[in-house]
Design a protein around this nucleic acid. Structure first.
Ligand SMILES: [Zn+2]
Ligand SMILES: [Zn+2]
Ligand SMILES: [Zn+2]
Ligand SMILES: [Zn+2]
Lengths: 132, 132
DNA sequence: TAACAGTATGTAATAATATAACATTTATAA
DNA sequence: TTATAAATGTTATATTATTACATACTGTTA
């Protein structure tokens, strides 16, 4: 069960928009879409995004500068994330694979570094785009 | 052995700078550093960076919008990359671990997607920063 | 309730990152 | 040589993100 965070007004507006979109959204596209709700400035968007990432309700797709609603029930923070990204249609899915996440969370090498977080992005062609 | 690409003038200037720096560099920091060599505009930098990424001489650290020289002898293209990033000192190393790269290159799930490329970024504290 | 701390908001300005469009030049190869 | 691809030069502009400062809200505790 995901901890219930009481989202603030702006956080809720922005989370709902991203969640309903079903895919990744970019900050200025979000801004455009919430202007009718009174959110007028980039900073208002980025602040809400920062908080939503922090509590794991959304994740940032780094290679796309975009934000997607968490598709796992278990992400309380954005600290172990994996995505598949179609390079043709830009469809993005969060990968939820216990073996993969265990493998990566336990990964260590001889660098002496203690890893506390990772982000993995796979690229390729999705089913639809492959068959064209 | 890495295929010998005959880098163009701008590509060589920019690769040498990044390589000698020993760490990740940002595009506009690169621009500042090569202005004395006649490279005056952002686009000249970005074009060289694009090409260098394409042939695997450098990789982009997506979470940092920065570029680092390939530290493996084997990357002919930037299509299977893994990095460790210290969140304190921002030191970045390319991870070269055969088991990890095999595991990820062979990864597949039931999404029907064919993965042809991945990028993995680990975060944590490096040896030095941990012991402070 | 009053005082406080922490979180969130509003607003303007600006910084940092990246690309579009167009003209010209250089390298490679048929 | 002629054609083609790759690289360069230049200006302008688009996109992404943060700084700085003022104000308001929310929950806790004296
Ligand atoms: Zn998630
Ligand atoms: Zn697709
Ligand atoms: Zn490499
Ligand atoms: Zn460090």
């Amino acid at each position: 069960m995901q901890k219930e965070h009481n989202l603030s007004k702006n956080q809720k507006i922005i989370f709902d928009l991203i969640d309903k979109s079903g895919g990744p959204m970019k900050a200025y596209s979000i801004l455009f879409n919430v202007q009718k709700k009174g959110i007028k400035a980039p900073l208002q968007v980025y602040r809400a995004l920062d908080k939503l990432v922090e509590i794991g309700k959304i994740h940032k797709i780094e290679s796309r500068n975009a934000f997607i609603a968490c598709q796992n029930s278990s992400c309380q923070v954005s600290k172990a994330t994996a995505f598949s990204i179609c390079e043709n249609c830009e469809n993005v899915s969060e990968i939820s694979n216990l073996k993969l996440s265990k493998y990566l969370s336990n990964f260590s090498d001889n660098s002496g570094m203690k890893y506390s977080k990772y982000n993995l992005e796979f690229f390729g062609l999705c089913k639809k785009c492959k068959s064209k």
